[in-house]
Design a binder for these strands. Sequence first.
RNA 1: GCGCCGGUGGCUCAGCUUGGACAGAGCAGCGGCUUCCUAAGCCGCCUGUCGUGGGUUCAAAUCCCACCCGGCGCGCCA
Length: 613
Amino acid sequence: MDPRQDRAPTGDPWAELRTRVASEVASRLGALGATVRPADLEREIAAPPEGMGDLAVPLFRYAKPLRRSPQDLASLLADGFPLGRELTSAASAGGFLNLTASVPWLAEATFARVFSAGDKYGHGTAARGKVCVEHTSANPTGQLHVGRSRNSLIGDTYARVLSAAGYSVEVQFYVDDIGRQAATLVWIWSKPGAQWPASVREKSGVDPDRPRPEGMKPDEWRGKPYPSASEVVKQDPEAAREVSELTARFERGEIPPAEYRKVPKEILDGVLASLARVGVHFDEFVWESDLILDGSVRAAVDRLSRTPHAVREEGGALAFDASSYGLPKDLARVMITRSDGSDLYIARDVAYHARKLAGFDRVIDVIGEDHKMHFRSLVALLSEMGFEHRPEVMHYAFVNLPEGKMSTRAGRAVLLDDILDEARERARKEVSLRREDFAPEEVERVAESVGAGAVRFHILAIQPDKPIVFRWEEALSFTGKSGPFVQYSFARAASLLRKAAESGQGDLLAGILRGETRYLPIPDPPDPREVELLKSLSHLPALVTAVAESGSVHLLALYAHEVSERLNTFYQSVRILGGETGSLAFRLALVAAARQVLKNVLTLIGVEPLDRM
RNA sequence: GCGCCGGUGGCUCAGCUUGGACAGAGCAGCGGCUUCCUAAGCCGCCUGUCGUGGGUUCAAAUCCCACCCGGCGCGCCA
């Protein structure tokens, strides 16, 4: 009989207790004459300051209607509060009812969930709907810089969290292969070298008649002529005409998609290779030009042109008056097509979102804050077309450099590839210094992983709303609040468990991992550092739920740091193997649970858990 | 000019949604810890008018208003 089958508990260890406390308090307040909804009260339950228990019920708002002081109410409630097996004390303090959880109960509740759910600990148990997360969607015009990759990291992490919360998630990359930018690059590369404008040849340093140089990524090589070519297109009307002609021919079906997309595809592949280094992957690529070729864009424009707020401009361009959708007056005119009848980006975006809304319960876009207005317009257009649910958006602020805005054209951008390479170099030095026992391949593997972990964690640990001023030294930190610190803590736990198995505790450990933790002897009193760690471990399920709700992915990184810190403090202060026999099982369980929690949260934030580093 | 977002110790950031108990971390600085489970660690010390001013409240970093500073945006680019 698998013990996991035996009433395997799931979810948040605290959930039931909170509900019980809320209903108890509500009924007691009710007896005093107040009308209190348990659900409201449950929401109000907070965490008291350290050392004052685990759950705090604020009583201030009930004081006035009951004509008693909050302090009185708290003492009244604390007196004879039913503790059961979960609670060890109920105390009144400054208008709060503070409840302290019993450590044996919490240990049992947490361990049972961690070990029965394993890699799924913290994940939601109910299946939710289908959600589409679109992120990155960078124009295929060259290498990704760290500003752009903030989009990828936030989007990727959010997708992981939604999936953990029970959604069926599809991650999409929208490839704009037909806008002016990509078209410019397709245009320049469609010409033999002899026809390249001199300025492009010079500035890009690319000879298109030669194959891609050894060791150069395709996104770098293919992207090199972009700034200068785009300059030419801006200056020279003939060049601009050629670009328009090229896209027009493609839209008429005169150029096979595979041929037209050759260059964008190569750039995309290069970008994807870089993103893969930081653990970012996609399920689906939607090529913008397909939406044109299959008629979706035309259908969307037709539909929009027949809506009451459609406006035909003087030159013949189609616009849309969005003032009734709450857009600021001077921004309310949204342009949909050009005077020459060609459609603008938003027209194609509407077609794309129409398709997504039809196929998913939730549609989430991760886009930069510079697109806020665009998104609002998009939502207005979709509503006008009659879509009932709206796409949701996660905006993030830009990553700037100390010397100003990041700009590839101004040569002021930090490329994702470059920061990752530098991170790997530094990690390699650290690893070789510390681990002389590692084979060269392992040094390499760990260095890549630690470097990527540092970069990924650094970007992710900051609230998306906050502009980041990017500094190399900070992004490459391997200590303190960093990815490698969390990886290190995980490796340390993993190492200890290996040692435990080697030193004759294999059976004990195997039992713990099978979830046989119900009658684990708990030290009495437990060390406060054991309790702090245990409490952190118990908080993952509630956190995942909250982040799935709010999109505050940075909280996961901060949580990973908190667990690591508490694990290290605990680890440093007590002896686990070869310590007091009475506490061995409990401490091993703590380490095993911490290892599992760190693994799960690292996976959520896309940093690789390393068994050795 | 208008709109949206940010402004918390020397630096980088949590906390603000749902006001509550002394505002928390990391880095930097200073001082300790390794015959012992990975020192990428641990312990201690130092540093704060929570941009400014007003308001609401028993209670404001958190809510409201005004202003200041920074970022982003403001119809035929994406």
